[in-house]
């Protein structure tokens, strides 16, 4: 039996940006034979193989309404990662995202992995948030960033793969270079993930291999 590593991931973002749609899409193509119980679309799990381990995502949805913001700390406490979702067609949602990032930096768990998902990329013709802004912002905070489409299942897998790699970066298989803010992945892991997935998140190989190890 393979070891199971549990990974608590919380979803943050405004109402209507498609938080739960992303999760639903991710969870839909189920790898598990036995489907674990869920709480509607609010709490879902998915188990994904990684190297010789199984990673079980425990995905906690949060209420996006402004009035419930103050309750969020209860949900993100103990999380390994946070997926912060904005709607590329709504500038406001990107603002809220920044607020979340700030709050997480201040009150969130230490070393929480942040992933920024610009959802609804199928509607890029009415886009309000340029991809470049998001990339630069993500770079500045060391977060993963992807533009996704829950509707068309674009980059959903990649988003969670990225989170998985980041969260295991302390293991021997992968390490995070703090200078260039890139992930160093061993060839073994890269093979396990499939080559296609890795560059989408990372690109290149780091020269500062020894810098933080």
């Amino acid at each position: 039996m393979m070891a199971i590593r549990e990974l608590k991931v919380c979803l943050l973002g405004d109402t209507g940006v498609g938080k739960s749609s992303i999760v639903c899409r991710f969870v839909q193509d189920h790898f598990d034979h036995n489907i674990s119980p869920t709480i509607g679309a609010s709490f879902m799990t998915k188990t994904v193989p990684c190297g010789n381990e199984l990673h079980k995502f425990l995905i906690w949805d949060t209420a996006g309404q402004e009035r419930f913001h103050s309750l969020a700390p209860m949900y993100y406490r103990g999380s390994a990662a946070a997926v912060i979702v904005y709607d590329i067609t709504k500038q406001d949602s990107f603002h809220t995202l920044k607020k979340w990032v700030k709050e997480l930096k201040e009150h969130g768990p230490e070393n929480i992995v942040m992933a920024i998902a610009g959802n609804k990329c199928d509607l890029s013709d009415i886009r309000e948030v340029p991809m470049k802004d998001a990339k630069e912002y993500a770079e500045s905070i060391g977060a993963i960033v992807v533009e996704t489409s829950a509707k068309n299942a674009v980059n959903i897998e990649e988003l969670f793969q990225g989170i998985m790699i980041r969260t295991v970066c302390s293991s021997s298989l992968a390490s995070w270079c703090w200078l260039c803010r890139r992930l160093l992945v061993s060839s073994e892991l890269a093979a396990g993930l499939g080559h296609a997935a890795v560059p989408a998140v990372l690109g290149g190989v780091c020269l500062h291999r020894d810098s933080r190890l």
Partner: peptide, 11 residues
């Protein structure tokens, strides 16, 4: 069948 997202469930 309606899968409640948190936005709906919490209230």
């Amino acid at each position: 069948d309606y899968k409640l997202p948190m936005d709906d469930l919490l209230p």
